[in-house]
Design a protein around this nucleic acid. Structure first.
Lengths: 179, 179
DNA sequence: GTTCGATCGTGCGGAATTCGCAGGTATCAG
DNA sequence: CTGATACCTGCGAATTCCGCACGATCGAAC
C-alpha cells in the first residue's frame, strides 16, 4: 500500500496539469467536495498522522509543497483532523457503556444537554426504538452509575434510558475515507 | 492551555530527577501504567497530532529527545496512535447506523466475523438486551440495507438485529485521557 | 556497601523536514 | 484580452527529527 501514485503523474512534468475533471470519482454531496488525490492524502495520514509531506507526495504524485497546502486546507475546512487517539482502558477509564435514550419533546435540545457532559464521548440522534444513542466513558462503576442515573435521567425531556455496558471492545477503526 | 509545565522542572536541572513516585495519580490497572507526564504528552497530541517534540517538551517540562522516546514507546505499546480522523459525510459516506445484535452460541466468534467486515467501523461486546453493538458506515441506503440484511444476518449465530439509523451526529470527541 | 543491568533524560551534531514565498499555468468571468 | 482565482512547483532558510554517547537513579543480587 505504499506505491502506485494515485494521480497519473508519470510523463507529464512541470506545470502541465491534466485538466482536472469536475466531478467523476467523487459521489458525495457535501460542501468541500474531495477529489481522488485528497482522498489519497487522507488515506496516507490515516496510516500515520505524522508521515512527512514528502513521503505522502511521493505516494500520491504531488510535490511536498502541494501536499502541505492540501493538508492545511483539509484541516482548516474541518474535513479531517490529525490527533492522538488512545485506548480508554490504559488511560484509566475502566467502564464504558452505550446508552439508548427515549425523549419526549425536543430531541435536539436533549442531545445538546448530553453533549455538554464531558463523560459523553459520542452523541447521535437516531431513527428506531431510541431517539438518541450516547457513548459514555467513565472511570469506574460508581462513576458510570452516577452519570446514567443522576445526570442523564435528570435532563428534562428524557423519558427513559437503556444501558449496554461494554464488556470487550473488538474493533475500532479510523479508516473511513478509503476501502 | 499552552503553558504551565506539568512536571515540576524549574529549579532541578541536569539529570537530577525528582524520584518518580510509584503510582499515585494513576489509578488504572492495565499493563503500561501511565504517569502524569505521559498523560500530558498525550493531551498535547490530542490537540495537534503533528505538534513538534520540542514544543511538547516545553509544555510538559522535558527535553525534545525525551518526548520523542516517550511518544515512540506509547506508540509501540499501543497506548495511543496518531491518525487522521475524518467527518464521514464529507468523505462520501452518507449513511451510518448502530446495530444491536443478539447472538446464540459463541458471541466472540460472531464479533470476530463482524469485525472482519470493512463496513463495520466499531464492534463491541455488551451486557444488556444486546450481545453486540456494531457501528456501520455506508455510502448510501442500498449499501446499508445490503450490509444489514445480507451480510450481518448471514453470519452464523446471529439471532436477530435491530438498527438505529443515524440522523445527526451531535458530538464526537477524541479527548479521552484528560478531563 | 558495591556491582550489575535496566530505565530514563540530556545534549549534540548531521540529515531530513517544514515553511514561506516567488513564479508559472489553467480556468473562469467580464 | 484582462484580471482574479486556484493550484502546483522549486528553492533557500529555519526548524525539526533522529541516532548515539553519556550521566543518574533504582532495584536486585552478592
Amino acid at each position: 500500500m505504499h506505491s502506485e501514485p494515485v494521480a497519473s503523474r508519470s510523463a507529464d512534468q512541470k506545470g502541465s496539469r491534466e485538466h482536472r475533471e469536475p466531478s467523476r470519482e467523487s459521489r458525495n454531496g457535501s460542501s468541500p467536495q474531495l477529489d481522488a488525490v485528497s482522498l489519497a492524502i487522507i488515506e496516507q495520514l490515516q496510516e500515520d498522522g505524522r508521515r512527512p509531506y514528502a513521503a505522502i507526495g511521493k505516494a500520491v504524485g504531488l510535490s511536498e509543497a502541494a501536499v502541505r497546502q492540501r493538508v492545511q486546507k483539509l484541516l482548516d475546512q474541518g474535513v479531517m483532523q490529525i490527533v492522538a487517539v488512545t485506548d480508554p482502558l490504559t488511560v484509566g477509564f475502566r467502564r464504558q457503556a452505550m446508552v439508548g435514550v427515549n425523549v419526549e419533546g425536543d430531541v435536539e435540545s436533549v442531545a445538546d444537554a448530553l453533549s455538554a457532559m464531558s463523560e459523553c464521548e459520542y452523541v447521535v440522534m437516531t431513527a428506531g426504538s431510541f431517539d438518541l444513542m450516547v457513548e459514555i466513558v467513565c472511570e469506574d462503576d460508581d462513576h458510570l452509575l452516577d452519570v446514567i442515573n443522576k445526570r442523564i435521567r435528570a435532563v428534562p425531556g428524557v423519558r427513559s434510558t437503556e444501558s449496554f455496558v461494554y464488556l470487550k471492545l473488538k474493533k475500532q477503526t479510523y479508516m473511513w475515507g478509503t476501502r
